[in-house]
Design a protein around this nucleic acid. Structure first.
Lengths: 191, 191
DNA sequence: ACGTCTGTTCAAGAAAATTTGAACAAACTG
DNA sequence: CAGTTTGTTCAAATTTTCTTGAACAGACGT
């Protein structure tokens, strides 16, 4: 089988002819993923798997991307954790095989659900805490300072409203429903 | 004026009572911004300005957040560059004053337009390049390898289609139009 | 024109992250 | 059960990113 031809320890040259193209795409996806807050390698590994018709082993992956086995193990583990890669099994084979979850849309939703929503919720909480904190100190302040604190309070309300609108939008995305970004706009117009 | 009372070199204690709340909110926004690929400090600085009824000077900012003047200069400069903060001017005063652009919606759009769109376009290009590269090598390959390369080619087409759908969605967001995330879904269904 | 006040840039230092090799553990083979 | 093979974890080392203080440059007032 032709993929077996790729397995050679000779550093250069012994690569299949399509390796260059493969790495180029993997790198582009790596950039996207990195920008999106994941490890570069996660994008790279996922892409290699996504472009491969057959499931691959960690050894093949580390050879393709020139990564140490620990690096592969770490990032691949994280990909599995996110459901972006599945472990598969082959009768007779001892090593694990991995294949990419190929529905990008499904992956996007999962990440938004697990990660972005949490992030927004934390921000919402923090804004609420800040407001409560202001409420507590308000009584100890003079007239001038109260005006100041009231101003901050109003602004924090706006940040909260915005964050909540954001949360709703992300929820809709996760549900695969249509969304209207202008909701964010209106969230800051009630002054 | 009460904000003047904050100006004291005494490290602790001399802070206005609302400082705690202010920093809490600033930090939450810092996290959001960091997650979104900006410097932590950008979010913090913007928030302090957003919560202040009056424009502020770099000195006040560095005192509030306990930052060196160079750190303030750097991140504030970037905020100005992104249009998130405006330099204002006060007759008689020598220092520059800064105030937050308070339309978050406007800011979001600008960032998506300038940054995310570029990122996606680069990825689209890279996938295209990879495909072209495959086309060039195809003739030198045997039957088995051609099948392999054809598979990769098809997958790259799907990644391209997805990226292009993403680009369209972001464009719509920037235009403030309704969007249907399910477009991404359908982008990978034509097999 | 001089001295002072502001803001920016830069190189050095500090902090944070990624990466690796080696040690460990677990599963399988004969 | 001893010896492999495979996968994970960990601390050390490397790389990258942030932060800072000092040097620099520009603007202003006198």
């Amino acid at each position: 089988m032709s993929t077996a031809a790729a397995k050679q320890q000779d550093p250069n040259d012994s690569q299949p002819l399509w390796r260059e193209a493969e790495l180029r795409a993997a790198d582009a996806m790596g950039r996207l993923m990195e920008f999106w807050g994941f490890r570069r390698h996660m994008g790279r590994l996922w892409t290699i798997l996504y472009l491969s018709p057959e499931p691959m082993t960690t050894t093949e992956l580390s050879e393709t991307l020139q990564l140490s086995s620990s690096a592969v193990s770490l990032s691949l583990g994280e990909l599995v954790h996110w459901g972006a890669v599945r472990k598969t099994w082959r009768p007779g084979e001892r090593k694990d095989f991995y294949q990419a979850e190929s529905s990008v849309w499904k992956l996007l939703r999962r990440v938004y659900e697990r990660r972005e929503l949490n992030l927004i919720r934390e921000a919402i909480d923090a804004f609420g805490d800040a407001q409560r904190h202001l409420d507590e100190t308000r009584s100890q302040l003079g007239r001038e300072d109260r005006r100041r604190v009231d101003y901050m309070h109003k602004r924090l309300s706006r940040l909260s409203a915005l964050s909540k609108a954001g949360e709703r939008l992300v929820r809709l995305v996760v549900a695969g429903r249509m969304i209207n970004p202008a909701d964010l706009q209106s969230a800051e117009e009630e002054d």
